[in-house]
Structure formats: C-alpha cells, structure tokens
C-alpha cells in the first residue's frame, strides 16, 4: 500500500501532507524534515528512489520527483510497483495541472482543500483507486459544483464571493 504522499517545495516547506497510516503531526514534521535532508543531498539526473527503512520501517520505499520548485514524494511498501508509483505521480501531477491550468506552487499553497479532494479521488486508504486523469478531473469538478451550489443556496450571492475557498 501507499504509506504517504507528500508535496514539499525545494525549501523543505510542506505543501501537501497525507499519511495513510496514523502518525502524529510532530512525527510527520520530523519525517518530512528527514526526507528533505536526503532529497537536498541528491543530484539531478540520479534515480528517483530512496531507501527509507530507517524512517518508515522495513520494506518501505520512497520515490520522489522534482517538478519546478516542488518535490512530489510517495512512500510505499512492497505491494506497489516502483515504476507504477512514478506513473501514478505523473497522473497526480497531470490532474493538478488540468484542475489548476498550468499548476504552480502557489496553486497548491492556496488550494489546500481542493488538492486534498484530488488526491482522495486517486488514492484511498493507501490503495490506488483511479489512474485516469479525466475521471479524476470529472469527479473533482462535480464536487466543486456541489460545493458552489450549496454555498450559494446557503449564503446568497453577497458573501459567497470571498468565502468560496
């Protein structure tokens, strides 16, 4: 299964943190720091895998990829295929790209909830659910529509503008 999905920027600031096995936030922050420490030390053009047995227990692997200023990180165990995880990361990034039209770090910064929605459509409880970008985008759009409708019904037009985030 997938243990965690983390997105952080090249300064080590987390932008998305999702653990599929319970960890306290303090532990999460600590793990993120250790991962960042390792990522920094790696050159470009090297393989995308890191051994993380010491951080996540036996059998754990980590795959990361740098997109512009962001590191995307998946932590998983032996029931997942390493290359498939890279593909899944690609799916995730493409979906983000479609949802935010040329996604950049700021999109992730300011759309905390939406990013979680997108991720939840792709992975649930550490299991891969959906690998088709268009399916995910459709579901996410449906959800956004529902939220907007609900908001407008409840609040009326005046406030909905600045509370829709």
């Amino acid at each position: 299964m997938i243990n965690a999905v983390i997105v952080m920027n090249d300064q080590g600031k987390p932008r998305l943190v999702k653990f599929y096995t319970f960890q306290t936030v303090e532990k999460q922050q600590q793990l993120i720091r250790s991962i960042y420490g390792v990522l920094c030390s790696r050159a470009n053009n090297v393989s995308n895998f890191i051994k993380v047995d010491s951080l996540f227990g036996n059998d754990a692997r980590l795959v990361y990829k740098a997109f512009a200023t962001l590191y995307f990180i998946f932590v998983f165990d032996s029931s997942e295929n390493e290359l498939a995880m890279l593909d899944l990361m690609q799916v995730f990034v493409e979906t983000l790209d479609k949802c935010f039209h040329n996604v950049c770090e700021l999109d992730l910064v300011f759309n905390f909830n939406k990013v979680h929605t997108i991720l939840d459509e792709i992975i649930l409880g550490g299991q891969v659910l959906e690998t088709s970008t268009s399916e995910v985008v459709r579901a996410v759009e449906e959800i956004s529509k529902m939220e907007k409708n609900a908001n407008s019904i409840m609040l009326g037009p005046s406030i909905s503008g600045w509370s829709s985030r």
Partner: peptide, 16 residues
C-alpha cells in the same frame, strides 16, 4: 471556515 483554517494549520504547521 474556522475548521478549514485549523485543518490547514494542523496539517502543514503541526498545530494541535
């Protein structure tokens, strides 16, 4: 909105 903010702070800034 309050809960969303708190969730954000919890998730990314480790606020209890």
């Amino acid at each position: 909105i309050a809960l969303q903010k708190l969730t954000y702070l919890h998730s990314l800034h480790a606020v209890d």
